[in-house]
Structures are given as structure tokens and as C-alpha cells.
Design a protein around this nucleic acid. Structure first.
Lengths: 207, 207, 207, 207
DNA sequence: CATGAATGAGTTTTCATTCAT
DNA sequence: CATGAATGAAAACTCATTCAT
């Protein structure tokens, strides 16, 4: 699992930090989704968090910190969901099919958050951006591992140097449901979408 | 070809408007790519355009107008490039292969612009956003037409209701080269990328 | 009749100056009444005048010049109307009664302009302001002369040092119909107003 | 007493709001008197108030708010002064004479403020304007009540439907001392003015 | 004489951040 | 630890005026 950059806080009690940051993240996610990062003010974040503006700055150092916290939270949420569900299946191929279906459903439920990360990530300072990108890569690597398992057990046929690319394809086509939903959902249901994309991906992996 | 929303200008001479807006767009594209829309100031746009801030506002009505002008310019540039090159090939299949290669190379050359549109589009006012999304769809539809041609001439095998999805796949996998370049280019050259993706797409289209 | 300050013009043909300034004044009066002096732009004045912004500045030197032209025009209009009608009557008393009625009706018809002068006058540069105030005084002095005539012919009884004050009273109570119209007109018709004020004024002038 | 529109403030402590707005009003009154509303900048208001520009906007929402605060302050000041002094006198007639003298002296002391309200009132947004006009009417109604008392106790003779008009006359002739002072003071002292106008008004109210 | 494109000083307003309580 | 009043740098946008054509 990818590392998380720790954001300094003036408050020392780690339990309290966790609680307050939870409030902050919950408030900020909604606000960022609704109005975007730049159009959300720190005052709004504080108000929606139920704390004072001064208190907000006891738990973060800058507005960008909040964005990082939010991105990290979303990624962790995705990761956690994947960890719960992505290892089922008798062989690599079955696991892959299950994982795709599950991942795409997660993407469907988190479309606003997927968009948020895609659109606001660039506002992060360099070092935070690297952490976020690493998490993005980490998620992709989960599919790499499934693919490798399938290759090993013979249920999937794929050149080794295609593994990484195929994993990215799987992830991006899942995210595509989120950021092209405005047009895709006019023509396909989520399940149709999953079926189509799954068969495309599987076709790409047989002898 | 998708319509373009016309942005009002205080200056009446249309030739001059075209020239000055050209300057503005050229300056703004670079600035937006470098610092993002929100962190670019109107004064910077004016300075880089070689005109005064007052003059800038003779040619636009708001900063969002500049963003629209930039998005529209980028899309038009892509469209124009596609129009020049995308119809070659003896049959649908060959045209598709050529088109993919050509499109992905365009995406490679315009990666900053692709990112720009993905990340800043949401800052457009509603009506402008609709125009930009329509252009995005228009670009996808060019691939739909190629696919349909291949189905008709028998060089491609594809269910009719998969056409739209496959066109989106082609486009998004092209854009993916732009917005995942930070990791993909560590493992694949552009041509490798094109070869892999082309074969994946073609595998998805045979009997 | 009070002097009028001449506003310099780059255009030499006096006939043309008169015509163009007529256009400018007509446009500006309406705009100033509608939006006030400060919220009216020179561009709007030019547009409504049917001339270009460059041309506007051939006939004036600054925006304040337009305000002066407008104030002067309104005053001249009032003066001219008074000159036509204010000398009728067999004696001073009768002339006064006629003059009041006539003046108050003029004020009623010009209420927007009366307000305009009261509210925007202060934006005039010092020397122009003096000219406008002189015209205001000039109008008052017309009533002084009527009062003096009435004193002389015995139809009005008034201390000589009250003449000036009474003349101001007459004028201001006329203007009051304009700038308190929002409440007065809810309780009195114009003719009732005139009757009441006339009798008040006459009561103030009997032995 | 007429209601006052409450202007929202970001600062919650009402005592502090009162103090800071006091500073702001004091600074703004002087500046508006000196240069007019439009030519006074918010930065000047802040500077003269002894606070930062950011702080200014913690206590108001727009420059118009300051104008309203100023108008309201002036009106309240007038009202308060009238309340202190205007009820003395054995009967209505005596009260009236005292009230006129007192009111006209107040007008003399506040001439700049009277002018300010007359000239800048129109820059208020619609709802604020209504509040200011209501206060203006409220002041007039104080004289109505004195007149009614005089009618009741027989010390003043006046048709009931003339009461309102006469009250307006009293007020406007008081304000006239403020806005025609430039000419009136060349011919009359304040006390002469008061004597003359008082006797005019009283002559209008006897059998 | 007529025009309108060009200009930049100046305006109101916002908002992330700090720090005394 | 919590608070929110104070701050000023910076932002978008306006508009009277000029001047080359």
C-alpha cells in the first residue's frame, strides 16, 4: 500500500487530530465536488466542518493541505473497498472479471470523487502531487497483480510487457465511466458498460 | 462539425477581432498550461498577448471567455488535424489503424492541451461547457464513422451497439497517453503504446 | 438673463456645434435621469447621441462638460418657459398668482430634471457650478421682480427685505413638489398643491 | 420611530460591530461631505476609519451599505435631537414656534449632512432607499403631530387636510436654509431667517 | 470632421492566513 | 485547544480620454 504524506498539525493529541480532520474532510469533499477547489473558501470549509476558522488552521497548514487530505481520503476509500473484494475468484481470470465488475461499480458510486481528483490534483504542491500519483499507480498495480496471477495459472494469456499497460487500460476505462458519463449513460447502463468492456479486455488476453 | 459559440466583442472589425483573439489565445494557452486557469491573472494574459488590460477587455467580456476561446481553439485544432489525415486507407480497417496512429500522435503532441481541457473545463459557465462537450463528442463521432465504414465493407466485425462505446474507448485511450504519461512513458515509447492499443482495439473487432 | 459659460469645442463651425451638442444633450439628459451622472458612461452618451466616442470629444472636453451642458439646457428651458408666460396679469398680485401656477406646472412637468440638477450639480467643477447657481438665482429673481411690481402697485404688502426670501420660498416650494412628489402626490393633486401653497404665500403678503 | 434596516456583518460581537461601524460612519460622513459618495473610495473610508480595507468589509457588504449607514446615522441624529427638545411649550402654537426654531438651528448645524442626504440618497439600492425615505417622512410627521395638537387646543387654525402639507413646508423651508445657504446667508442671519419663516407659517394658520 | 481601437490608472471586493485572547 | 477579528495583497473589471487613420 502506498505511503501517505503526513500533514503537520499544531494539535498534538493524535486521536483528536483524526476526529477533527475527519470533520474537515467530510465537509471539504462535498464543497469541492459542488464548487471546485478554487471556489471553495477556507471559511466555508470551517463552517461546514463545524469548527472555527482559527481551529481549522490548528489542523492544517494551508488550503492545499485540505485538498491533499481529501485526495488521500478518496484514494484510501477506493483502496479499502478494493481490498475487501478484489481477491475472490478461483483463478486469475475469474478474479479479474470480478475485480473489474467491482471496480467499475465503485467508480460508478464515486464518480464525483474521481472527477474531483482528475480536476483538482494539479493544484497540489509538487510533493503532495507525487504522493497522490503514487496512490493512483498503487491502485493500478492491484490489477497488475491479478493479471500476473492469471498468467501464472494459465487462465490469461498476455505478454509480460503488456501487463502494466493492460492494468492502466482497465483502470482508465473504469474512470472513463465517471468522466464521460454525461454521454455514455445515454447509451449504456452500467452493467452493459461493464460487460462490453470486460469482454474487450478479455479478448485482448487470449492466445 | 460542431458549432462554436460566438463571444461578443466591443471591437467591430471582425478581421481585427480575429487577429487580437489569436494573440490572446496563444498567450493564454501557454499560461493556462503552465499555471492553470485560476492562477493565471487577466493582467498576465494581457501582458503576454502584447496588449493592455483595457484592450483585452475590448475583445472578451470575462476571464471565462478566454478559457472558452482556448478550449475551442484546441478542439478546432484537433478537428482540423483529424480532417486532414483521417480518411486515408483502402478500407475501414486500414483507415482505423491509420486514424488511431495519427490521433494518438496528435494527442502526444498536444498532451498539455488535452490535460488543460480535462482540468479546466469545469470552470466554464454552463452554456459554454455544453459547446465544449459537444465538440468532444464530435471528435469521438469521427471514429464512429470510421468504424461504421469498416463494418459496412466487412473489414471490421462489430455489433452496431458497440460502435459508440468503441469510439469512446479509442479516444479515451488516446487521451490516456496524455494524462498518464508520467507513468506510461517510463515503460513504453509512443509507438509501442500505439501498437499495443491498436491491437487491443482490433482484437475487439473480429468475428 | 444670466450668462452661460461657453464650452470649448474642437469643431469650428458654430452651427454644427449647436446641432451636435443638441444631440448630446438630448441623449445625456435621459441617461442622467435614468442612471445618474456617475453611472452613465461617455460611451453610452455617444451611442445614444448617434455619434462616435471620438466625435463626442470633438464637441466637449470632459464628461463634466456634458453635465454642465445638460444643467444649462434645463435651466434655459425653464427660463424660456417662464419668459413666455410670467408677465401676464393686470397687477402684481394677479401676475404672481399666474406665475406661481405656471411655474409649479413647469416644475411638475420637469420634476426629473429638477431632481437631476439638485443631485448632480455638486459634480460640476467650481467655475461651472458658479454659473449654474447663478442661473438658479436668476430664476428666483424673476419672482423678486413680480413681488416688487406688486408692492409698487399696492396689490401686495411685503417688507422690502422680505422680498428675496419670499421669492426663494416660492421657488423652493415649487421644487419641493418635484423632490417630495413620492409622498405629496399621495395626498394632493397638483392643483390642490398649487392652491394651498398660493394661499399660504398670499397670506404672507397682506397688511 | 421609523424602523432601521439592519446591515449584515461577518463579525458576530454586536458591541464590536457598533464600535467599528461608529468609526466607519464618522470617517465616511466627512469624506462624503468633502468629495461626494462616488469620488470617495472604500480604501479612503478604511484608512480614515483607522482600519484595514479587509476589516472594513467585515462590517459591511458593499460600499452602498456605508452610504446607508451614514444616511441612517444622520437621520437618527436629527430624530434624537428633535426628541430631546421638540415637546416644550404650553400649547401647540408655542411648541410649534419652539420646534421650528430648534429644528432650523439643527438644520443650520447639519447643513452638510442635509445636502449629503439630498444628493447621494439616489445611489442607494431600492430597499435601502425606502427606509431612508421613511425616516424622512417620520421627521415630517413629528411636525404634523405638533400641528394637530395646536388645532386641538385651539392655538392654531388649520384645515385638517392642510396639516400634512404644512408640515412638509416647515421641514423643507428648514432644509432650504441648508441647500440655499450660499445665497440666503448673504442676506439674512439664521435668526432673521427663522423669524421670517416662522411668521409666514403662523400667518398661514390663523382664522 | 468623424471614427473607434487602445490604454492604464483606478475601483470594489475577496480570501488565505495570523495571532491575541 | 478553540476562537474569530484583523489584515492587505491581489484579483477582475471599468471607463474617461487620446490619437492615428
Amino acid at each position: 500500500m502506498a505511503k501517505t504524506k503526513s500533514i503537520p498539525s499544531l494539535v498534538k493529541d493524535p486521536e483528536l487530530v483524526k476526529i477533527r480532520r475527519g470533520q474537515i474532510i467530510r465537509a471539504a469533499v462535498d464543497l469541492f465536488v459542488e464548487k471546485g477547489f478554487h471556489k471553495t473558501t477556507t471559511r466555508e470549509i470551517a463552517r461546514e466542518s463545524g469548527i472555527g476558522i482559527g481551529t481549522l488552521y490548528e489542523y492544517i497548514q494551508s488550503k492545499e493541505d485540505v485538498l491533499y487530505l481529501v485526495c488521500d481520503f478518496i484514494h484510501s476509500d477506493v483502496e479499502q473497498k478494493l481490498d475487501e473484494e478484489m481477491t475472490h475468484g478461483r483463478n486469475g481470470r475469474e478474479t479479474l472479471v470480478n475485480a473489474i465488475r467491482y471496480f467499475y461499480r465503485v467508480m460508478d458510486g464515486m464518480q464525483d470523487y474521481v472527477l474531483l481528483i482528475y480536476q483538482e490534483m494539479k493544484s497540489l504542491p509538487g510533493d503532495m502531487l507525487r504522493y497522490v500519483l503514487a496512490k493512483e499507480e498503487e491502485i493500478t498495480s492491484r490489477f497488475e497483480r491479478i493479471l500476473e496471477r492469471g498468467i501464472k495459472d494459465g487462465s490469461l494469456v498476455l505478454e509480460p510487457d503488456s501487463v502494466k499497460l493492460m492494468a492502466h487500460n482497465i483502470v482508465v476505462l473504469g474512470q472513463m465511466w465517471a468522466f464521460r458519463r454525461w454521454v455514455l449513460s445515454r447509451h449504456y447502463t452500467l452493467d452493459q458498460y461493464i460487460d462490453h468492456q470486460t469482454s474487450l479486455i478479455l479478448q485482448g488476453m487470449q492466445g
